[in-house]
């Protein structure tokens, strides 16, 4: 029962946390971006990678809403990719995605 009373609806959203592998990869592909007038969508999750094995799992078709708490709705494709890659150089190394499952 988390009524937001008309605020931005966060129902049906899933928080996914993962750490990169030893090569600094999370193991998923993203498409879209503000410059392409498309939402950021997970287009592929490679088997056996952090994105595949985290709980809850990242799934193809998931729409990425927030990256490490940051609203990416105005970010270009390249901005989003840089933001994800930067998170593995972060102190925690953790990537936190808020996604809307497809």
């Amino acid at each position: 029962g988390k009524s937001m009373n008309g605020a931005v609806p966060h129902d049906n959203l899933v928080l996914i946390k993962m750490r990169p592998d030893e090569n600094g990869r999370f193991g998923f592909n993203v498409k879209g971006g503000a410059d392409q007038r498309m939402p950021i969508i997970v287009s592929r999750v490679a088997p056996g990678t952090p994105a595949d094995m985290c709980m809850p799992r990242l799934n193809e078709g998931d729409q990425v809403v927030l990256i490490n708490g940051r609203d990416i709705s105005d970010h270009t494709h390249d901005d989003v990719v840089m933001l994800i890659k930067a998170s593995c150089e972060d102190q925690s190394g953790e990537l936190i995605l808020l996604v809307r499952p497809n």
Partner: peptide, 12 residues
């Protein structure tokens, strides 16, 4: 013109 077949996917 719209290029709707031009979808870039980047691996991260």
């Amino acid at each position: 013109e719209e290029k709707d077949e031009c979808i870039i996917a980047t691996e991260v």
